[in-house]
Design a protein around this nucleic acid. Structure first.
Lengths: 340, 340
DNA sequence: GACGGGGACTAGAGCGCTCTAGTCTGGGAC
DNA sequence: GTCCCAGACTAGAGCGCTCTAGTCCCCGTC
């Protein structure tokens, strides 16, 4: 049986003040760590607060200062990469005077509601992770509060954007394959999916720059395993390439499953590079070489922009776009091409 | 160029009151939808609020009522199942007057910080999803605020617990296999992992109840693919079972990869059941039959308990434990055993 | 010894709400 | 016509902080 300090009726600043024998204002001064209190008193107040296990009520604190010092983060509950970004955001915000408020969306709870509830708590800026919201909705939002969009390309006059250089991501993948000795490299694309056009472009220019123009081939793919499997049918035909870059990891996984089912060995007969560095890529049984977005940098950049807007009322500044380079994660699905 | 209502200096209740020509108190009455206002005025106030796009400041509202009507939810950012629970919690809280505040933990941000920041916003109850926190820490927390623990077995005198009946989950899996005609069913266990003991027990009693005592066999496994692969070595020996229940999906995936590598066909030669219904289980290329936890029910139960404690100051009531039955998800890795 | 200045501390007015304790109507009962 | 009361509405005191505008006192200066 723990001794129970029985659910106390919430110790307030007045309690601390009384115990330390000073005014509430002084307690406030000490706790905010601003000048205006003598060292001895400071000590005494700290002890009193300690003894009472006092924790300031954030709601009141923020109401009083008429600032919220809160950055709202809107993320997709089921988006694994968003989780990474949120984690990095927590890390980045740790060194500031701000706090994060999370608003999640999911199939059964739309982004709009997440945004609204965050706004009701008067956060000073909003960081939207890979928002599915229509552009108009985002710009409307930006009229009310500074908005930073992460991981979505969006040409806008009013919001800051932080995103990965997807074009470069695929380029890196192609260069990795070329370094291994591949020349016959095919791209399985993502159709109209966000980011697909850019990745396709990255593939094309990389091939051209490598002088592999004649080998350039883009196959219709998609976002799911299914799409990768379908693309496999073409890839495994007679004029088979020795390497493939896929739109994303799931597409790559489907492709590999189909290839293996036909006795094509990965990576000996076929090298495969995915995109996203999702959880499946890191499974021991998959070990997919893939392109990873740099979550810490994306998060730090986004937070910096958000804070800049929150601090100075820098509405005037033109919106910024920060493009972060991705990184290749080499695992087990790429190898030198086999000599025929 | 959208017309810009330029980041307004926050419209307050007083603004609405002025526009509607009533007192602030009346606005409050109308907006909270409590009796005390005539229909005509009600209408007028609503219109004024609408016109000004007024949204009450939650911080102030809650400060004033000296309640927060907020339920803190502490979850693991990278736990896919937690995402499901959070989504269900959002759904469940939708019909109440409460709101959810999310606090996330991750490798770089410990649970304790998540809890503290939630507490600083004075939420009225805490729902901890699969907390890794030591039992003592949880009980200490429970002295300060009502706590509901979800998805972790915890015998405690002060906190409510909502969890899945893991023992029954494995039993269902075994019964499914038995229904298909299997008699030689092996369990690959999770060692000391949370839940492993219960699943093992479920397996043992199910086998006994089916009169398959003599076929009972528990193999050392673990949480990762790797562990499944190692277990496969024993399973694929001469006295091979026709079916396996694995501790979790990842373990099952590793096991299947190893089996297929040796030319053992799943499900024809070997049926496999996982546990968790994680994302990998639902991949087209895996299609793992598995046991799913009932997130909506777990969430609804947890919320109900949390609200009950928050509403009435039901400290006195003894803690409740709610055990929710899991559900079998049949996919493609189980089939009738082949006639030899 | 009067003066000034600065550091330590306090009083009290908000912040934007809620909520209790009113005041003021108008209409039904007698 | 008086009384009363329910229903509509308002005044104003919080809620737990922050922050501006003080007050007080001590010490150095000339």
């Amino acid at each position: 049986m723990a001794k129970s300090p029985k659910r106390s009726p919430n110790v307030t600043m007045a309690d601390v003040a009384a115990r330390a024998g000073v005014s509430r204002a002084l307690v406030s001064i000490v706790l905010r760590d601003v000048p205006g209190a003598g060292p001895a008193t400071r000590q005494r107040v700290m002890e009193a607060a300690e003894a009472l296990a006092y924790r300031p009520d954030q709601r009141a604190r923020l109401l009083g200062s008429n600032r919220s010092r809160t950055i709202g983060v809107v993320f997709g509950l089921h988006q694994a990469f968003h989780a990474e970004l949120v984690e990095s955001l927590y890390g980045a915000v740790g060194t500031t005077a701000y706090d994060l408020a999370l608003g999640a969306w999911a199939p059964s709870r739309d982004e709009h509601r997440a945004v609204q509830s965050l706004l009701d708590y008067r956060c000073e800026a909003l960081v939207l992770l890979g928002p599915a919201l229509p552009r108009a909705a985002i710009e409307e939002l930006a009229d009310r509060v500074p908005v930073v969009v992460v991981a979505r390309a969006l040409r806008s006059t009013s919001v800051d954007v932080v995103r990965t250089d997807d074009s470069r991501g695929v380029r890196i993948a192609v260069e990795h394959l070329a370094d291994l000795g591949h020349t016959s490299i095919t791209h399985v694309d993502g159709g109209r999916a966000p980011g697909a056009a850019e990745r396709r472009r990255g593939y094309r220019t990389a091939m051209r720059d490598l002088g592999l123009d004649s080998e350039t081939e883009v196959l219709v793919g998609g976002l799911a395993e299914h799409d990768g499997e379908k693309a496999a049918a073409h890839i495994l035909a007679d004029a088979r390439p020795t390497a493939v870059t896929a739109f994303n990891d799931r597409c790559a996984a489907g492709l590999m499953a189909a290839a293996r089912a036909r006795g094509v060995h990965v990576p000996n007969d076929l090298s495969v590079v995915g995109y996203d560095n999702s959880q499946i890529a890191s499974l021991d049984s998959v070990a997919l070489t893939t392109v990873a977005q740099d979550a810490p940098t994306l998060a730090a950049s986004a937070l910096e922009l958000a804070l800049a807007r929150a601090e100075r009322n820098s509405d005037r500044c033109p919106p910024t776009e920060i493009v972060v380079p991705p990184r290749l994660v080499v695992r087990g699905t790429t190898a030198r091409p086999q000599q025929p």
